[in-house]
Design a protein around this nucleic acid. Structure first.
Length: 441
RNA sequence: GGCCCGUUCGUCUAUCGGUUAGGACGCCAGGUUUUCAACCUGGAAAGACGAGUUCGAUUCUCGUACGGGCUGCCA
């Protein structure tokens, strides 16, 4: 059975980059009728916070990314210890005692000599007595996985056939000096034991994948299918991480972005399928194919989310936005007409307020100099309210007859004078909602 | 520095060595609507650079430039 997972660490809020990964995994599971696991990667008690666990769940629920299982790595420490024992038993695990400072120095030295900064495996030569001494002096060492120095190959769902020479990679540290297990081992143990069949993640994990494949095999498991999607950059191609602050899901929600707009974009951006607004998750699931994604970095502009949001809102019936419209104080008998009139002129629900203010209070007229006399004359022909759906037609007809103007020259100045805006909803419908026309005096 | 990936209209991308280099979004222009939007039609718009292989290269090879990632006792 197809099983995928999204494994965020609760050290911050979910942002667009995370979301893309989560969504892809979700879509793959759903399309295959499989299982989608939410796995909280909280092995680091110092950096993990419960409030982020809650926030991650909230954000995913907001988007409708429902998980079938939730797991917490902090509750699976025993499993990781078992795997570590196994690696020790088969001789693929060794203790090393270099301090971070020493390692840093080694790396710099290697770099200076034009060599790749790969760990030199000095610890492999330590005798038991030497290890005891070091342990006594420095405390427990770190545990490194001993890589087989050969090329590691796999067929990646996005990258295609790819291979990395293990000799160009350091033996990964899987357990820290303080005993804390690290991402690499926790991830492979979980993926194997939880039956994960497809791993989609950012291309920042490509090198990890090579070492993880060896670890999985050493533990007797079968590597899942891997797919590494490209990373998002900003509109200028700059790394997105620099601006992550503005791209947290909760900020987007705050700005009025609608879930389906966001999902429609993230499920297609970077693929050869056109980005189109979908109003149902089912449509996204059906059309999703990880193989259609390219591997080049993908530019993402938050602004593109707003037109999609606008289009999504337009498609909604009144019931779906009733509470927002209620909150504005729009009288019950005018709500249907109001929504109908303004829905095509909003990008987020926050825009509703401005339109209602216009209907309720009227607007400061916008009158070009050359139209001053014309508008003044027209206003004398505008009857007193309340207005209805015939008002605009009756009024403009009367204005046309007395002034001789027609077409754009007739309508635009009146639109500007009544609404104070260059553009807006259909005027006959809007007029019926106008309670005040300030230009009338 | 090393390793991995990449570079086609503004953006996301298609192209199994021979195409008028296609589509989508955006943009521009007409049409339609006696106004706005929507809609319809049309248009402008691209192979990073340099070699090589070939009858023929966007496509294959090499180099250069540029971009992204990794190179952690982070994930």
């Amino acid at each position: 059975m197809t099983t995928t997972r999204f494994a965020p660490s609760p050290t911050g809020y979910i942002h667009v980059g995370n979301l893309r990964t989560a969504l892809m995994n979700y879509l793959i599971a759903r399309k295959a009728g499989g299982t989608f696991i939410l796995r909280i990667d909280d092995t680091d008690p110092n950096r993990s916070e419960e409030k982020y666990v809650d926030a991650i769940k909230q954000d995913m629920e907001w988007l409708g990314l429902h998980w079938d299982r939730v797991e917490r790595q902090s509750e699976r420490l025993d499993q990781y210890a078992e795997a570590a024992d196994k690696l020790r038993d088969i001789g693929r695990f060794y203790e090393a005692f270099e301090t971070p400072v020493e390692l840093d120095l080694k790396r710099k030295k290697q770099l200076n000599m034009g060599k790749p900064p790969v760990y030199d495996r000095a610890a492999l030569d330590l005798s038991d007595a030497e290890k005891d001494t070091l342990r006594a002096e420095r405390g427990n060492g770190v545990w490194r996985f001993k890589l087989d120095r050969e090329r590691i190959e796999w067929n990646d769902g996005v990258l295609g056939n790819i291979s990395i020479d293990a000799a160009s990679v350091s033996d990964p540290v899987l357990i820290r000096g303080d005993g804390q297990v690290l991402y690499t081992i926790a991830s492979v143990v979980d993926d194997t034991e939880m039956g994960v069949t497809n791993v989609v993640r950012g291309s920042d994990h490509v090198t990890n994948t090579a070492t993880q494949i060896q670890i999985i095999k050493a533990l007797g498991g079968t590597p899942p299918e891997f797919a590494h999607h490209s990373l998002l950059t900003g509109p200028q191609g700059e790394a997105l991480s620099k601006r992550l602050g503005t791209l947290a899901l909760r900020d987007l929600r705050e700005q009025g972005v609608q879930p389906m707009a966001l999902l429609s974009m993230m499920a297609r951006l970077g693929s050869s399928d056109p980005i189109e607004l979908r109003s149902e998750m089912a449509e996204l699931i059906e059309g999703f194919d990880i193989n259609r994604f390219g591997s080049a970095p993908t530019k993402f502009d938050v602004q593109d989310l707003f037109p999609l949001t606008g289009r999504y809102l337009q498609s909604l019936p009144l019931e779906k936005v009733q509470s927002e419209i209620d909150a504005l104080g729009v009288p019950a008998d005018k709500q249907a007409a109001f929504w109908d009139v303004v829905k095509e002129n909003i990008t987020t629900l926050a825009d509703l307020e401005g339109w209602w203010a216009l209907c309720r209070d009227g607007a400061e007229p916008l009158i070009a100099d050359e139209n001053k006399d014309f508008v003044a004359q027209a206003m004398t022909l505008l009857p007193e309210g309340p207005y209805d759906t015939d008002t605009w037609k009756t009024w403009t007809t009367a204005v046309k007859e007395t002034t001789g103007r027609k077409g754009k020259g007739l309508f635009m100045p009146l639109r500007h004078a009544v609404t104070g805006l260059e553009r807006g909803p259909d005027m006959s419908a809007l007029m019926a909602l106008m309670q005040v026309v300030r230009a009338r005096g």
